[in-house]
Simulated scan of single mutants.
Amino acid sequence: MTIERQNPPGLHATPGYHHVTVASAPRTVYLAGQCPLTPDGEVVAGDILAQTDQVVTNTAAALEYAGAAPSDVVRTVIYVVTDDRAVLSSVWNRLTSSPIAEAFTTASTLLGVAQLGYPGQLVELDVTAALA
């Protein structure tokens, strides 16, 4: 299995992700949106970065359970409840310096949204991985 990450000529420079990810893999893993929930189902108290850390923990556990690693990720979509670019950047920076940072070198989208599914939830991560 191969995963190619590329930035085609003529497209803008990126802050770490790639515009195009091509995978040749017999298995694809789709994670449900990873939320900032503790094992008992409670939204993590605190700020958006504390919630981002829980999302990282949950995503790492889900990837490991599926037999995948951050290097197997081919697409991420990050949802953040904000209209402030500085907040979006802080979440991106936290993710790209986290234990699953390699997952964000692939095709990634970062969105500011009005609201997410759980009361008080500020961040959610959608992940797709490709496995041999």
Rank of each mutant, 00 (worst) to 15 (best):
T2N: 14
I3V: 15
G10H: 13
L11Y: 13
A13S: 07
V22F: 06
S24F: 09
R27N: 09
T28F: 08
V29E: 04
V29G: 01
Y30Q: 08
Y30I: 13
A32K: 06
C35W: 05
C35S: 12
L37E: 02
T38L: 06
T38D: 12
V44G: 02
V44L: 05
D47P: 00
I48H: 01
I48F: 00
L49A: 03
L49V: 06
L49E: 08
Q51L: 01
D53N: 01
V56H: 03
T57A: 04
N58P: 14
N58F: 00
T59Q: 05
L63T: 05
Y65W: 06
A66W: 00
G67S: 12
P70T: 07
S71A: 08
V73C: 09
V80K: 10
V80R: 04
D83R: 07
R85S: 06
A86F: 13
V87S: 02
W92M: 11
W92Q: 03
R94D: 01
L95I: 07
T96Y: 02
S98W: 12
A101R: 10
A101M: 08
A101Q: 11
E102M: 08
A103R: 08
F104P: 09
F104H: 02
T109W: 03
T109Q: 15
T109M: 11
L110H: 07
L111E: 14
G112R: 14
G112A: 11
Q115W: 06
Q121C: 12
L122I: 00
L122V: 05
E124P: 00
E124G: 15
E124C: 14
D126E: 13
A130L: 05
